[in-house]
Design a protein around this nucleic acid. Structure first.
Length: 255
DNA sequence: ATGGTTGCCTTGCAA
């Protein structure tokens, strides 16, 4: 089974690239973040015409997550249990081939001094509580998406410049550690120990051309899924050229 | 410290 995650930074201007990605990589499940459309405006026909199943949890302008999958998802859940009706749409979960897949778009956080950073930490706390209540370390669980947190120095092009800033702050690392304490491992690190593998490059300042990136798109898995893991890699080339998202897709293969 | 770029039912804001 192949599961992929990709922050597309709005699905409509990225539609041709997303369709090309499906054709090229043939995932069983593609988890999208930042679709930036209402459910009614998601171009689902373009996917369904090719035989894909679509589950969305969208909102206009900001946020929004979706599944594109080969088989229909079961037990789909949208949002965190304590979200209000007008909450930002940042989580969709579904079961595919017996594996629970939780697709998240963690709040950006803007800067450690901002209200948005408080919201980010609170959102991560609510996520941790939901997972702790619904899952155990023995489950077949995959938690993946845009975490907006780079785990360690190897995941940051200039760790000393980023240390203490948003995406690389001790409070974010504490929140990530609490998620991992549920029995979730950073799958990329089961396959690659070296630094310099990034999944996001800022549009500004020629981030990609200078390789000034961060690895903030993560695939966390329970032990049973780690043991089934065959590969986990970043499709870096998707970030190149005109009309790219600022994130590259991350792909995980399981037997 | 600032600025750079992209996307949005925009002319500032979020990322």
């Amino acid at each position: 089974m192949r599961i992929a995650t990709w922050n597309v930074n709005s699905v409509r201007p990225r539609l041709d690239r997303v369709l090309a990605f499906l054709e090229r990589q043939q995932p069983d499940v593609l988890c999208l973040q930042e679709i930036k459309v209402l459910d009614a405006d998601f171009p689902r026909d373009r996917f369904e015409a090719l035989g894909w199943h679509v589950e969305t949890f969208g909102q206009p302008t900001y946020n929004g997550v979706a599944f594109i999958s080969r088989e229909q998802a079961s037990d789909v859940v949208r949002g965190l249990p304590d979200d209000g009706d007008d909450a930002q749409r940042r989580l969709i979960a579904g079961t595919f081939f017996g594996v629970r897949v939780v697709n998240i778009y963690v709040p950006n956080g803007q800067s450690p001094e901002s209200d948005k950073f408080v919201y980010k930490l609170d959102w991560l706390e609510r996520l941790e509580q939901m997972l702790a209540g619904a899952h155990g370390p023995g489950d077949d669980l995959v938690l993946l998406g845009d975490f907006n947190i780079a785990p360690d120095d190897r995941d940051v092009h200039d760790p000393d410049a980023w240390r203490g800033h948003v995406h690389f702050h001790p409070k974010e690392h504490e929140a990530l550690a609490k998620l991992q304490a549920l029995g979730l491992a950073d799958l990329f690190r089961w396959h690659e120990r070296a630094g310099g593998h990034y999944s996001w490059w800022d549009y500004r300042g020629q981030g990609y051309e200078c390789d000034a990136g961060l690895r903030i798109d993560l695939v966390l898995v329970t032990e049973s899924m780690a043991e089934r893991s065959e590969a986990c890699f970043i499709e870096r080339a998707e970030r190149a050229g005109e009309g790219a998202s600022d994130h590259a897709p991350v792909i995980a293969d399981f037997d």
